[in-house]
Amino acid sequence: MATIRNLYTSSNLFRQLGYSALLIGFAQLGMAQSSKVWPLQPGIYFPQAPVPGKWRKSVGVVFTTTPPELTEEIRVSVPAIDFNLQRGLSKNFYLTGRFQTQFVQSNIGVGFRWVKPFTNRLFMSAGYDITGWLGALQIKDVFSSQAFGVETFPNVSVGYKLTRDLRFTFRTEAIVDLYYRSQVGSLAVVYNRREVNGVAFTFMLEQPFYHQRHVSVGVRGAYSNFNWQLWSLFDTFDRNLFYPQLIFGFIL
């Protein structure tokens, strides 16, 4: 029987990367600038409400990498078109809406955010989103299946204006399942269990990109039992699988 010689582990490298982040942090020492005025900039993730009565919109793409536990040797990054819509209701309260689609499967969500500014650079928000997803596949000799479900995402975001033009947001979400129904031919399965399905962490940078166009660029790591985009694989695991996502959006 063969033995594998583990001479070095990737955890060491991650530790080194952490140290690098520390070094970069210290390299910023002494570069502080005057922060008297922080202009309001468009942002979808940054926890700052739009001007009351105004809309904020974005269109972009989300790439989700499939976990090997489900797609085995086929490791792909699946794109979804991603629309966001937000409306300010008051200085610190706004509504959110999001629509993601891959045509054969789509997800629509609504929610709200309540914002608490701490300084002119540091903001926090608490929010609650509820989403419904739907998928349908009709392929000869392969699929005659549909599924839909409802999930909810209580979330907390911390936003920090790194400089005048660059805002960073860290968001933590709990992923809670409310309802799941799938159907193959005439047989259907319904799960009504209301339980925590996982958590997700988002790291997002928002800034001007070219001319007056602003963008959101970031990553989201979801650790969850179920991911709506992979409903057609009928995952049976009760394990939190890792779904890394790359998020890129143009703020309109």
Binding site: A2, I4, N6, L7, Y8, L13
Partner: peptide, 18 residues
């Protein structure tokens, strides 16, 4: 090369380069 690597046990007099 900064992660684990595997050399089959059947290989003798192994010389490795990272």
């Amino acid at each position: 090369y900064s992660t684990h690597l595997g050399v089959p046990a059947a290989i003798e007099q192994t010389r490795l380069s990272r």
